[in-house]
Amino acid sequence: MKKSKAPIIIVILVVIIAALGGAYWYMGHSVAKRIPGNTYRYQSVSKDKTLYVTFAASGNEVVVNPDKNTAVKAAGSQTAFDKEYKSQSESATWRYSAQGGTMTLAEQTKDGKVSQWQYNKIFATGSKFTSHSFTYQIAKAGQGQVKSKTVFEKVN
């Protein structure tokens, strides 16, 4: 009367698959929880330009700057963030929205023109998040979708 181990193995496999699947799903939907208060480095599609993005600890404001020091400084404290954000807002207002597997950066210029980049199918880990495509609407420039992988690496 030897008991078969198969059911146990199946159960274990199901649990493992469920755990992995759950973790995968979570990583695919956790960007909104991970980014507030942090600074990320973004490298352009052609890898020749770098941008630093600091997300507000609360609210939907974001400091977008090619200078790392500025971005990291903004992540230091709410006061520092507000200062950098105010300085940046002299030319344009930047906000962000993150939900599920998407994160959108939006710029509104003084004349009301809006440009947006929505990063889709984001897979987020503790140190970076990866988007598998982005949708863009750029004022006076164009709109569309680009199916290129882009990576935001946490720097602070």
């Binding site: 906000r95 939900q99 959108t104 939006a106 006076k140 164009g142 709109q143 569309g144 979708q145």
Partner: peptide, 29 residues
Amino acid sequence: GTHVANTKVTINNFVDNSDNSVTIVDSPI
């Protein structure tokens, strides 16, 4: 003099949208 250089070409790149537009489903603005 603070606006970044504009483009001289329209950068449209519609993937699957026949009405030549894209939808930002999650906009903060």
